[in-house]
């Protein structure tokens, strides 16, 4: 095998991959995008249909009177009416502001703690297991304590949301940094990366997928903690999704209650979906994506 043959061989190997990357005709692309959207969205659609069918069957069986368990059509209609009301948007605003503030603070605190802990071996030993311990603590158990510390206030809710989410985020970054392949570190160090530049250019980017998984888990905990908080820490002047749940329960308005629940479910899934997209995108670019 001569030099020239070898070069041609490599050229050939590279060509098909390049062709796949280059843009095809516009129409063909649009069609494939459409079919991809359908292929991706039918499993969740099927899940929704199955749920509605089961619900309808239970309703028709007469297991509970219809004012206790309404049928899907009634609830969906109520959801539509609710979404059209200004009061709902006010409640949604309060809840989403709390979610953003709580998750944002947890993000900052969790990331900082994760970075500092992974930097120092001593801190790692001392705090690492504590963070995992915190993660197993049901965050609702913090509320009585939070209420004693902060009163029935916004701060009590944020405190618990942060305690719920930050450990997952910190753990994500710690395990990400722990699992950076040694071979990459050695390679980076022969390339001249030391100390801070090793962290900036190699360790942190290598830990990114694990960090994003931590964020996703952190979001799930933040959302749960927030809903628990809004049910337990009712602030009269502030309508929120949690307050609405409580309100509908007091008036035994199941249709309204279920409408709020649907909104809570959809919101949680939407944000999780966004985080999943980012996370899957990062993984796919590294060739770590699922085989599909």
């Amino acid at each position: 095998m001569s030099d020239i043959d070898a070069g041609r061989l490599v050229g050939k190997a590279a060509a098909p991959a390049r062709r796949i990357r280059s843009a095809g005709p516009q129409g063909q692309r649009a069609a494939s995008l459409g079919s991809r959207v359908i292929r991706r969205s039918w499993p969740p659609l099927l899940a929704v249909i199955i749920t509605l069918l089961l619900w309808e069957v239970v309703y028709l069986s007469g297991w509970r009177p219809s004012y206790v368990l309404p049928d899907p059509a009634t609830v969906l209609q109520r959801t539509g009416e609710m979404v059209a009301s200004g009061k709902f948007w006010q409640a949604l605003g309060t809840t989403m502001f709390r979610a953003a503030a709580g998750f944002g603070l947890a993000l900052g605190i969790g990331t900082l703690i994760g970075l500092v802990v992974s930097f120092s071996r001593t801190l790692r030993a001392a705090i690492g297991s504590m963070i995992t311990g915190l993660q197993t603590m049901p965050s609702i158990a913090w509320f009585p304590f939070a209420i004693l510390l902060f009163g029935l206030s916004e701060s009590a809710i944020l405190f618990v949301v942060i305690l719920g989410a930050a450990p997952s985020i910190a753990n994500g970054i710690i395990s990400g940094i722990d699992d950076v392949p040694k071979a990459l570190i050695r390679t980076a160090s022969v390339l001249g990366a030391r100390g801070l530049s090793l962290y900036r250019y190699v360790v942190v980017p290598a830990a990114l997928p694990a960090y994003l998984s931590g964020l996703k888990q952190g979001w799930a905990f933040a959302w749960r903690s927030l809903m628990a908080g809004e049910l337990l820490v009712i602030i009269a002047s502030k309508p929120s999704l949690g307050v609405q749940l409580q309100f509908h329960r007091e008036f035994a308005d199941t249709a309204g209650l279920m409408s709020v629940m649907i909104i809570i479910l959809v919101l949680g899934m939407l944000i999780d979906g966004v985080l999943s997209r980012v996370s899957n995108g990062v993984r796919a670019r590294r060739g770590m994506g699922p085989v599909s």
Binding site: G192, Y201, V282
Partner: peptide, 28 residues
């Protein structure tokens, strides 16, 4: 200056080919 190669290429998977080479240039 000493450079080293291993049995595994150990390319940084989050960077393109260009990014990998640029990082080496930047670090030197």
């Amino acid at each position: 200056r000493v450079g080293m190669m291993f049995q595994d290429a150990n390319l940084f998977p989050w960077l393109t080919v260009r990014g990998n080479i640029e990082l080496a240039l930047r670090l030197s």
